[in-house]
Structure formats: C-alpha cells, structure tokens
Amino acid sequence: MELKLADYKSDLAPDWCPGCGDYGILSALQTALYKLGIEPSRAVLVSGIGCSAKTVHYAATYGIHTLHGRPLPVAQGVKLANPELTVIAMAGDGDGMGIGAGHFVGVGRRNPDLLYLIFNNEVYGMTKGQASPTLELGAQPKSLARPNIQSKVNPLMLAFASGFTFIARGYAYDVKNLARLIQQGLEHRGLAMIDVLQPCPTYNNLHTREWFAPRVYDINAAGYDPRVPRDMSDAERAERMARFTLKATEWGERIPTGVFWQAELPSFEERLGEFLPGYPKTAPATRPPGGEAERARALMRGHRVAE
C-alpha cells in the first residue's frame, strides 16, 4: 500500500500556542519520514517533558513520552533492543542541555544509529518562561524578573566534544530545509544531532520569528562541506575542526544552519556486534524465544568444581 503524508499524522490536534515553532518541527519530521518511506509502525519517537515532548503524540508512529531529561537513554534502550527500528529522540533545550546533559555526552561517546532533535527556544515554556541553558548571558526575555546571570551552552560545540558524528542546525520555520536536514540525519549511519532553533511566541520576545528571519542562512548552500571521511589526513582534519569551530560559534547578525560535521565511526550496534555473537541479528527484542535454559547452563559449566 502506498504511504501518504497523512499516514504520519495522528488524530490528535496539537495544543501548542499559536505560532509555536513546534508545528514546523512536527511537519518537517513527518515529511522526512514520508520521503524516506519509513513505515510509521517501524519508527519510534521518544521525547522528554515539556511542550516539545508532546510532539510524539501528534505523529502516527510509536511514541514514547518519557521523563524530564531522559529521552536519550530510553531511545537507546529501544534501539539496542531492536536495531531494525528507526528511532528519533527529541528534547527541549532544558530537557536536553540542562537536566539531561549528562546523557548528551554519554550518547555521543557511543554513536548509536539514531537521530536526536533539540527543540531550542532558549526558555522553559511549560513552566512559564524560565531561562534555559541555551539563553545568552545577560538576556532578559519578558518572563524573567532579572537578566540571565548564567552563560549559555552551545549544543553544537558540546556535541562535537562528545563525539557526535553528525552535527547540524535547523530552523523551525524553514520547514523545507529542516525536513531535508532530518532526512540527512536519518540516513547518516550513527548518531545525528540537529539543534533546531525556534521562537517561543509566548515567552521569548527577544528571538522572535522576525528576529531570526533575516539572520539564518544555509552554510551548505554557501559551499561548506561537512564531510570528514575516515581516511582524511590529520592536517586536513585539523583544518576542518577549525572551520567547524568558526561556524558553530558564529551567532548574532548571521546565524548559520545546515550540516556542520559529518564523520564516519562504527555505530554502537557494530561495536556490540564485535563481542556479542550474531548481534544485531540476535538483538534481544527480535530473536525468537528459546535457548534460555541452554544459555544458563553454559554459564554454569564455567563454575563446575570438577571437569
């Protein structure tokens, strides 16, 4: 049966504020899944807590709305149990860069084959607009009682330091390009992260749609090549790292979007397969039942007092 874009939409109407960037991200996500022809029942969306987390309920895939900060571990559990599934984790900036930041570093070191979207609007929306870890030092959106006295974390730089093999930035209101980025992230073998900039029309009166529109530009269209093949020379790699750093820290009058870094490294599933016989074919959620007693007996044999 031919899949239609409508097949990726659930019956539930979103309850986000009018003008929320989440609409654009949801739409781009559904478009990317549709374009890649991924069966909705073979895709699992995993979110944290907050406005962004509701996204999973509006897609007609499997959806897991987890705890604050925990979408990444849950998503990795799903993926490692059943590597045949397409797994997309998503988190708000507070979720992903604050309470869940430890998992961000952890997943980077593993490089599982999944996509991670950060819904970055610089505020905690659901709890009425507190400063998130991506809000600039000194910034004071209207919901804050005083200017922000903590510096911001740069998701791209942290992703790089943590070993992510695909690092990108999108913009929620450029749905077409965001859908393309998501498609590229899903096609990447290994861990892909997209930092998605989005206005929060209710609490962030600083970085609005009008503020972003003239600033965002596509680095790949401007000739930036993110690919870092495995056999690249050290000198060339160092040059790419310097170029990445320049682009990833560019912010203000011009805000770059696109793919910043794409490297090749064995996925976590491949690394596990080197030690676990048959994995991922023998993955715990897909292997047929049977053989359990024999596996326990195999362990016991190693404990026999006499051979």
């Binding site: 925990r70 571990p73 990795q76 559990g77 490692l80 676990l276 993955a283 715990p284 897909t286 195999a298």
Partner: peptide, 27 residues
C-alpha cells in the same frame, strides 16, 4: 554466551531509563 546486551552507561538515570526503553521494545 549469555546472549545479554550489557551496556555500561553514564549514570544510574541512564541505566534505568535505558532498560525501560529496551523493555518497551520487547527485550
């Protein structure tokens, strides 16, 4: 030979939530 996917993770929050994810997928 136990056939168990064992993953050492970054903290106990990851440990428990990862196991929950695996269980949700049927492991």
């Amino acid at each position: 030979e136990s056939g168990v996917v064992v993953v050492q993770v970054e903290d106990e929050l990851a440990a428990v939530n990862m196991a929950i994810g695996a269980s949700m997928a049927g492991a």
